[in-house]
Design a protein around this nucleic acid. Structure first.
Length: 471
RNA sequence: GGCCCCUUAGUCUAGUGGUUAGGACGUCGGCCUCUCACGCCGAAAGCAUGGGUUCAAGUCCCGUAGGGGUCACCA
């Protein structure tokens, strides 16, 4: 088996989309698995919609996901440039070579003429195919014109897709597509082929929405005299309503998920499981993915994007990181939340107790506000727990902590435990008022953890504040 | 509408002719417990449909229905 050369070839018209990210991921995984090459090519021939910001957004998104490319923008490579708009000479040369061989021709039909023909076909409920009006006209270099590929008539095209199996396209549905615009910019079906040929791509793995382009492209490969690569068409990702995933289904760009506090490991992990599996395993390290991934085992059915499961995967990843690492990753989110967090033992402790209580880094950074700022006491919690009856309890806890030189989990457990026992109370009767005093609410990490994270001085201050509140 | 593709619980999936149809998310119930969460245990929930082929079909074939894709000087 030859080593695969794969590519991800996005058009820079927006951010890196979840669907595009998965396509890139599958290409990357297979390249890494098989020891092949992963190429990034920017298909920016749609000048209306392509932007430099979008290029940057795509590069950023790929890097965030950890999908590095061996050839492409910013890293270069032997088959560059990797922006289509910098390769126009190449497309022109190849297109004219086909014209010279009688395999393509100049077409001077106007847009208006073509639109009228299409309109009429629709009125007659008939499929429209370009009738070949200019097919036999000789090349006239003085005219501004597009170049169309001369499709061999009524020739069925068959190929075996790595994920969908044998596929056939009836020749009667193929038409003489435009391959080069009148301004010399190629169309997708031509630019992609010329690039894949010249970049020596031998495995084209792309979205399902390109299956119908494949037959035409195969004819181009053949006309050009190059070997046809293998194809793998990856099923689409749908929204909850089974329609193709789009903005109206919510966030679709990978950077949006980054901003929501997802780990790149989790996004990769979730996306790879859409259409691929390895036994019953749900959580995969990057190394495992590279080891286990098999393009041929990708399923052929479209899958619905499920944000809840992705959140669960993220949660699993959050829990699997060491507290130090989690703190490091979460720091920017704490700062974005306006909290005076900094790397150190405190943030590490917050990360430790927060991991199992958070689905995202944003949740982690925002639900423990009271560990960094004075708590806002919930009125209902106050009414229920900061009562006159609780006062002596709180006072005793306060005094007990004050009397402990260097509180730790064991000493606190003994303190609160003995206090409850001596009064014949369940631990909860003591812990809840303390919790409200320290956090402002009734739900928090373990009370000993809270005290230790706040520190002796701050805990005492908050208990004092609560005591005044009762009085 | 033409052409192409797809069809296992609400969702992601395992399953390559003989399984009590397995796992996961979500949902519901219980246990654990200082609250929340985590964890653990358990439950409900599935082969779209009609015909074939076969001793035997979720698995193979055909039809139907449903869904998706695509029909540009977009990609």
């Amino acid at each position: 088996m030859t080593t695969p050369r794969l590519r991800f070839a996005p058009s820079p018209t927006g951010t890196l989309h979840i669907g595009g990210a998965r396509t890139a991921l599958f290409n990357w995984l297979w390249a890494r698995h098989a020891g092949g090459t992963f190429i990034l090519r920017i298909e920016d021939t749609d000048r209306e919609r392509s932007t430099g910001e979008a290029v940057q957004a795509i590069l950023d998104g790929l890097r965030w996901l950890g999908l590095d490319w061996d050839e492409g923008p910013e890293v270069g490579g032997p088959h560059g440039p990797y922006f289509q708009m910098q390769r126009l000479d190449l497309y022109r040369e190849y297109a004219h070579r086909l014209v010279g061989q009688g395999k393509a021709y100049g077409c001077t039909c106007t847009r208006e003429e073509l639109d009228a023909q299409r309109e009429q076909a629709r009125a007659e409920k008939r499929q429209y195919l370009y009738p070949g009006t200019c097919r036999d006209k000789p090349w006239d270099p003085s005219r501004r014109q597009v170049i169309r590929f001369k499709v061999p008539k009524l020739r069925e095209v068959t190929f075996t897709d790595l994920v969908k199996g044998p596929l056939t396209r009836p020749g009667s549905t193929l038409q003489d597509e435009v391959i080069l615009r009148s301004d010399g910019v190629p169309l997708y079906n031509f630019g992609a082929v010329v690039d894949d040929v010249t970049m020596k791509v031998n495995l084209v793995a792309r979205g399902d929405d390109h299956v119908n382009n494949t037959a035409f492209q195969i004819l181009i490969y053949e006309a050009l005299g190059y070997p046809v690569p293998a194809f793998a068409h990856l099923p689409m990702i749908l929204g909850a309503d089974k329609a193709r995933l789009s903005k109206r289904h919510g966030a679709t760009s990978v950077t949006a998920y980054r901003d929501m506090g997802f780990l790149p490991e989790a996004v990769v992990n979730y996306l790879v499981r859409l259409g691929w599996s390895h036994g019953d395993q749900e959580i995969f390290t990057r190394e495992e993915l590279v080891r286990f991934f098999d393009l041929a085992k990708v399923g052929a059915t479209a899958s619905v994007f499920n944000p809840e499961k992705m959140a669960w995967v993220n949660h699993m990843w959050l829990k699997s990181l060491s507290p130090d690492e989690l703190a490091r990753r979460a720091l920017p989110y704490f700062l974005a939340a306006g909290l005076p967090a900094e790397l150190g033992p405190k943030l590490t402790s917050v990360a430790r107790v927060g991991a199992e209580r958070s689905k995202t880094l944003v949740e982690l950074a925002t639900q423990f506000r009271y560990l960094f700022e004075p708590p806002v006491v919930d009125p209902k919690a106050r009414a229920k727990f900061l009562t006159p009856e609780a006062r002596p309890l709180l006072q005793a806890v306060r005094d007990g902590i004050a009397a402990t030189a260097d509180p730790d989990a064991a000493s606190l457990e003994k303190l609160l435990g003995d206090l409850a026992a001596s009064r014949g109370l369940a631990l909860g009767k003591v812990a809840q008022p303390v919790r409200v005093a320290l956090t402002g609410g009734t739900a928090s990490p373990g009370i000993y953890d809270v005290i230790l994270i706040l520190g002796k001085a701050e805990a005492l201050a908050r208990l004092d504040a609560a005591l005044t509140l009762i009085a």
